[in-house]
Amino acid sequence: MTEVLLLGRRAVREVIRLPEATIPTLFIPLFFLAVNIGQVSKTFPSTTPFLHGQGYVGFQLPVSLMFAVCTATSGLALVTEIDLGYFDKLLVAPIRRSSIIFGRLAADLVRGIGVSTLVLLVALAFGATMRSGVTPNFVPFDRLSPVMEALARANPVSYVIEGLRSLVLQGWVPGKLAICVAVIVATGLGLTWLSVRAIERYDR
């Protein structure tokens, strides 16, 4: 556990010292927010039913948040580390190999919270209001063509967005939130398990 904290602290330090790695991950969500506020909100005025009386900014905000969080840089940082040889130094230390992964994830968590907070603040400044205190990605499922709808329903990310969106637009909707959390936890666990397995079998 201490190992994870130590490695996490170091990774957070790296995030802070290399802002050039984080700034691009802010650019895309903010860009989408800006575009949507400018143009798309004209197409969907706040009287549009699925917006629950809010501007399109509120509808789109969760997408921006997803972008902000999903462009996590840990994987890339780990690849760089392998290249630089520092990874070998960690492998030869008497620590659990999984703690290398968890240390990185801890840093991503910190970074994700930071970036999301920023995106939220910007969205609020542009007039999104929060029903909860926080969806198909750009329009609701039933507004999509049948093929697109099928794809969107199969994509787990849709449910995350739906859940987040319900928080912004409708307040607490336990059903949507539960699916959202379930998807996040399941994919999170699945991917983490794969990473841990990969690092435990790693040798070159």
Binding site: R10, R13, E14, R17, L18, E81, L84, G85, Y86, F87, D88, K89
Partner: peptide, 10 residues
């Protein structure tokens, strides 16, 4: 090791 393993930002 032969390839010096240092973390450049620390």
């Amino acid at each position: 090791l032969q390839e010096i393993g240092l973390d450049p930002v620390q």
